[in-house]
Simulated scan of single mutants.
Amino acid sequence: MGTIDIAPGDFIFDMALDLKLVIGFVVATLAFIYVPVLNETIARPALGLVMLLFVPGYALIAALFPGKNDVDGMERAALSFGLSIAVVPLIGLGLNFTPWGIRLDPIVVCLTIFTIACCLVANRRRHELDEADRFTIDLARAYNEIKEEVLAGKTSLDKALTIVLVISIVLSICMAAYAIMVPKQGEKFTEFYILGPDGKADNHLTRYVLGDQKPVIVGVVNHEYRNVTYDLVVSLNDSVTVTRLYSERLALGDNQTWEKRIEVKPDRVGTNMKMEFLLYIDGNMAIPYRECHLWVTVTAPSG
């Protein structure tokens, strides 16, 4: 093979159709993840599923095998699924050791960079080959390869078993996609928690001088799969007298989080009194739906 002259930038602007489609798919997936209205449609999980299970592997295979005779169409498709299943967890494992962690934004950024980088490498490597040797999408050739792989040179039983296997694989992929896009409704519950003034689950301020007002962070997360109205009540209980120190009504949508820093001021002196954080649901004030408490001591002012 002779030397191939590549003008600067040619390998980027003269990109093959399949690589253009991959990059276009990545851009479309980003739009359906982050653009309002679009990210509320069923297309978001569908595109995300393909982005996780096929696209990164396809881009990597394109970079590793730029020639049309390196691997055939069936092998290229199968390896695309296999490598995607290998690459995505490895990216997640790497992110786990970074300050960003395994969250949506870092994963999306890393997968996008990885896929586009592989596409650029693949296009550069293809331009280093003769045009006749470069891999290109040929639907007629792909159909003939699949037909030959599935049917040619096989007995009737082998053909039937192959067809059943292909149908089983397609059904498995469809069922997995359905399970991801339409997850089964889990247990209904509400998270209710209190945090110290530094936002941690410890270091609560439990010693007061009468007249002091100290902060407590209260959080509620609605996992009831419906809109819910809650009533938050903070009371002080010394086994003899119960007094209300704070109350607030809040309405939360499904999977919505409410967190607020409230100031609590005990109204009397006492030792090891129970400061109760009570959460009622749907206007039922008879029995608390969730409860947290702190044991506080309030002393009289000195002097």
Rank of each mutant, 00 (worst) to 15 (best):
T162S: 08
G186L: 11
E248S: 13
V55P: 03
M181H: 12
G48I: 00
E40R: 05
V88K: 03
F192M: 05
S84K: 13
M285I: 12
V26E: 07
S247V: 00
L83W: 03
M1I: 10
S235M: 14
I12R: 01
L205V: 08
N227E: 15
L279H: 11
D254Y: 11
V298N: 10
V209L: 02
T206F: 09
M74R: 08
H223A: 11
G101E: 00
L139C: 11
R44Y: 02
A46M: 13
E276C: 07
D254F: 10
N144G: 15
V209F: 01
R249F: 10
E75C: 00
V296D: 07
G253Q: 05
R134A: 11
I116G: 04
V109M: 06
P215G: 08
L64P: 08
C119K: 04
P36I: 03
R141A: 14
G196Q: 05
G57H: 02
F13K: 15
Y208E: 06
F277P: 08
L49H: 14
I33F: 02
D18G: 00
M175K: 06
A179N: 07
A122K: 04
E128N: 13
D5R: 00
P99F: 09
M275R: 03
I262A: 05
L279N: 11
W258N: 04
M51G: 14
R125K: 15
F11L: 07
V166M: 13
K214L: 15
G270P: 02
A160N: 10
C174I: 04
I217G: 06
G199E: 09
N237I: 12
T3N: 00
D158I: 14
T257S: 09
R207N: 14
R124W: 15
G253D: 11
M181F: 09
V298C: 14
N69S: 09
P215V: 05
V298G: 08
N144Q: 15
A86P: 00
L232Y: 07
V242W: 03
D138K: 12
D72V: 10
M175Y: 04
T155P: 02
N96M: 10
V166Y: 06
I12K: 02
K188S: 13
A140K: 02
I262E: 05
L38Y: 02
T112D: 07
Q256D: 11
D72I: 10
A201R: 11
E263P: 01
R290L: 07
L52A: 08
I113W: 00
N284Y: 11
D18A: 01
S239I: 13
T162K: 01
L49T: 12
A46I: 10
I281E: 07
P99E: 12
F54Q: 04
G48D: 04
Y58S: 07
Y230M: 08
L104S: 08
K184I: 14
W100A: 10
A300K: 09
L30I: 05
R261H: 10
A286C: 00
L210G: 07
D282M: 10
D231E: 02
I262N: 04
C174P: 00
I169G: 09
P56K: 08
G199F: 06
C174N: 05
V218E: 08
W100P: 00
S235R: 15
L294K: 01
E145R: 06
G196P: 01
G57N: 03
V170Y: 09
K200F: 05
M1W: 10
D133G: 12
L49S: 15
A132R: 03
C110M: 14
A177T: 01
V269L: 13
V298Y: 13
P197C: 04
C174E: 06
